[in-house]
Simulated scan of single mutants.
Amino acid sequence: MWIFITLFAAGCQSVRTAYQNTLAREAGFLHATMARSLYGLPLVSVYLVICWSLFGWVSLGNPPRFFIAASVCAVAQIMATYFMLRAFQSGSFAMGTLLAKTEAVLAALIGLPLLHYTLTIGSWAGIFLGVLGAVVMSVKWKNIRQAHKDISLLLGLASGLCFAITSVTASMASHALSGSLVTSAGVTLWYVLALQSIILCGIQMYKSKDLLAPFKHEFALSCKVGVLSSLGSIGWFTGFALVNPALVKTLGQIEIIGTLYYSKVRFAEKMTKQQWVGGAMILMSVVLVVTSTVK
């Protein structure tokens, strides 16, 4: 089940990221980051009601653990999205997305002491192969000694770290609730989006001195970002609740196919042989993870 949910989430995120990149260029980083939460909250609210009616409600099994983990998740996702959008502007759409994919191995490492999940040798091989593929695609080998000064590289890696923290804390928050895991994931997602909306809308209103500022910029495009983001997030958060987040994010790297398409067609970016090789490695990592976990 988690495989199909993850593939759905990856497909939605691929399209959403492309729209969000465009929105960042048109309305700025803050609005593009805010749109994914504020404009996605209504759809997630409807989804939560459906989960409630189908799977039943949940109770707070460990309130402090839930609120701390979910709040950290919300802030980490804001930072991850911001860093990724900044990476787009300083590098390229494809490179920014691919560098953020280092989150898979980071999620595995962070999750070991916090979630107590175990991974097979095949799963570890797949995770590291996926990250290596992202590195092959994004590093300019001629300038390898100066890589630490490459702002797009640093922003992409920072985004990957924050996304990894998001994945792990989302899983922790969902498991702090008692009841259906599907509903628990929905409650966690709703709380995260609500908190993000409050934080980001507050910042945008303060900076613009306008209470209606969140609704005045690229409304139609913001709605597209919000709807696609909420659909993708429903898939991601449900996947995080069901299995090890590292496996979910590694399989989610199938998103690379959509990334390459939008990079080439929508943003007219050229892909080198080195980048295609890295992309092939990422696809191989997905196969490894799936074959290692499906029996």
Rank of each mutant, 00 (worst) to 15 (best):
L109G: 04
G279Y: 02
V192F: 14
L132V: 13
A176W: 03
L231F: 05
M84E: 11
Y191L: 01
L161R: 02
Q204F: 05
I144A: 09
K101W: 09
Y19L: 08
F67V: 13
V136G: 06
G56M: 13
Q204R: 08
L132R: 05
I3F: 01
I5F: 00
Q146C: 07
I199K: 07
L231R: 03
S14L: 03
L60T: 11
A100L: 09
L260I: 07
G239I: 03
A76N: 10
L212K: 13
W190G: 00
V136C: 05
A74D: 08
A80R: 03
V49T: 12
G61F: 12
L242Y: 06
I234E: 05
L189F: 05
C51N: 13
I121Y: 13
T259S: 09
L231S: 04
Y117S: 12
S292A: 15
A74C: 08
R25I: 05
E269M: 04
Q146S: 14
F240T: 02
L251N: 10
L114T: 06
L200A: 08
M1Q: 06
W124G: 05
Y82E: 13
R36A: 10
I198Q: 05
G40R: 00
L161C: 07
Q275I: 00
M281S: 06
S53K: 15
L228D: 01
V287G: 09
I68C: 02
V46S: 02
T17M: 09
